[in-house]
Amino acid sequence: MKYTEDHEWLRVEGDLVVVGITEHASEALGDVVFVELPEVETMAAAGDEVVVIESVKAASDILAPVDGEIVAVNDALTDNPGLVNEDPLGVAWFFKMKVDDLSVLDGFMDEDAYKELIG
């Protein structure tokens, strides 16, 4: 598992990158009440705002961590946004991206580095 400075986790599944948010991020957001997912087959550039999350407190975005094509989204979150709080590292993944070269993930933090970031 890799981590971004925006508190997303990245997991490799075959030739895809699965993207979710960390427990730290889910706790900081508070209870999630709305998730807006991108269309599948969307091309995204690193840094694009591809998902909107609304919690009881505020709205925030999830950014595409790398360039690639969004090939799957987790529709379960639309009907049950609370999954983001219940199981952020498991069932509450947000989208899967197809990237040209998985080695692009090498530049992200590993778990130890992420833990250091969040103190």
Binding site: G30, D31, V33, V56, K57, G82, N85
Partner: peptide
């Protein structure tokens, strides 16, 4: 603003 139970609960 909230306790450990969280705003929703």
């Amino acid at each position: 603003v909230q306790y450990p139970m969280g705003v929703l609960k």
